[in-house]
Design a protein around this nucleic acid. Sequence first.
RNA 1: CGGGGUGUAGCGCAGUUUGGUAGCGCGUUUGGUUCGGGACCAAAAGGUCGCUGGUUCAAAUCCAGUCACCCCGACCA
Length: 577
Amino acid sequence: MRMSELIGERYKEKPADCTIESHALMVRGGYMKQVNTGVYTLLPPGRRITQKIERIIREEMDRIDGQEVLFPVVLPADLWKESGRFTSVGKELVRLTDRWGADMVLGMTHEEAAVHLARDAAKSYAKYPFMIYQIQTKFRDEPRARGGLIRVREFTMKDAYSFHTSQADLEAYYARCYEAYERIFKRAGCKNVIAVLSDSGMMGGKISHEFMLLTAIGEDTLVLCDSCDFKANLEAAPSVVDNSAFAETEPLMLVPTPEMATIEEVAGFLHKPHAATCKAVVYQKNSDDSYVIVFLRGDLEVHETKLRNAIGAEIHAGCVTPESGIVAGFIGPMGLDTKKITVVFDRSLEGIGALVCGANKADHHYTGFNMERDYGKVGYLDVARAVAGGICPVCGKKTLRISNGIEVGNIFQLGTKYTKTMNMQYLDENGELQYPIMGCYGIGVGRLSASVCEESHDEYGPVWPISIAPWEAQICVLRADQEEPKRIGEELYAALTKAGVETIIDDRPVSAGVVFSEADLIGAPIRLTVSPRNLADGMVELTTRDKSVKRQVPVAEALSAVLALKAELFQAIEDTL
RNA sequence: CGGGGUGUAGCGCAGUUUGGUAGCGCGUUUGGUUCGGGACCAAAAGGUCGCUGGUUCAAAUCCAGUCACCCCGACCA
């Protein structure tokens, strides 16, 4: 490729809309152009990167016996009605109508399409297990796109679906896929990717992992243990507390606490630690606005996703009205109308001998409240947020750390949710009908490219790993208006290209500053600088984008030096596998 | 969906308070001088000022409506 012909401009100034580095650099470098909120056109450099990522993904999916297919983008709503998701999924699912009035949907994920294919193709146990995958455009009408390619509405995704005749077989395959994912991210040059336990959300199923790039700009919050292997998304991280210091009991007493509606005020007034108080948080169910009140230890916060999962209902922040009978600021377990109100006790309260809690009476709290003695046996749930410095649910040490991450991939053990609702069955060895067990596995291609950029850039531009760089080498011709540098540059370009090195040459007669700064934005890992100064000694300059290599090589040896460097860079990636 | 902000040339912005010939920098085109980290001089092209309506002799500017985009939150497979 020639810079003089490359479509798209590179910009000196940072576009006003960009708030994160990868977005700004990829717009400045001419990788992409926004068309709409969360909808982008990829220009040649951006497209070349995603093609290389797709190639890596294909190779790894094929290695674990995946078979590539291509599902439609537009699907009949009937399939989604079978699984129940036509109504259960919100506005993210784009619904449309064809000219005959038939409901259609834009595929945001393809479990339904996968089952539609597989239920006719795999009626015998002998066909199992198998995995089908595709790399295709998805459209999800996100409530809020942001961050360039990090969170978009239209994007390319690799989605894979596996089918099994036993849970053990699914788990074995899941492990293979887990390893394939680790290889994919390493081969793409994305170093700080870790797998964390996740919440399966509306996908259904039990076990799932998310592959997260650790970065401060990540939208997800992760809980990591510094003492063991425990890693989880905050929404899937159990909250563990040690209440042994608060086991002592006290007599129950009603005490006046005038106008003290917050934990701070009450705990301060009564000289009790926050952890020995019982906090109430009010929500309402989306379905009927009925109240949900969560009681948890005063020093903790509710995690709303955990709460949703625990009670199996969608909820929103509660609005306490005078008619509700709820006394805001003084809510306690005793005396609440549990017929009208769903009461949830977080397990952080378990084992506390004497709690301070609201008395459901204005300006009054109880002290010495003991759950079992004063209220009765309750089923505790886990709905609190894990905290930094908290107790690891696996090793028990207080070494939890909170970190941010971008989700670049996920794997789910789906179970039989879709095969049962969509009536997919096969005949087993005994001639009995069985429902296959499914797994599904996704990777966001564009998000991965932006993630690598986010992880690997400097103030001048992206520093692409050679495995996904738009071009492996860039020839910078200084003084392309002069005969000799121009000729040598062209000869090297022809030689490198012929030798299989993906090369872009900047053959424009522009100043050195422009050549270098735009080369930095293109981010090719290998750079050959051809200039009159070096040619006077018969040399060209060989550098790497990350500045680890910078040396003069004779013109005649430039090709072999580039080939050697390319091999070395690829080998370095191989060595991480 | 709530809160905030912005729409003026390909990009970045000024001009709007106080109505009166649409500007600046970068980029682009042409000519010339430069030449190893975004050079200089000269000339030029490029805009129905988001859109619709209103007020006015006159609207980028004032009023009403509307659309789009960005940020924070909600949400998120």
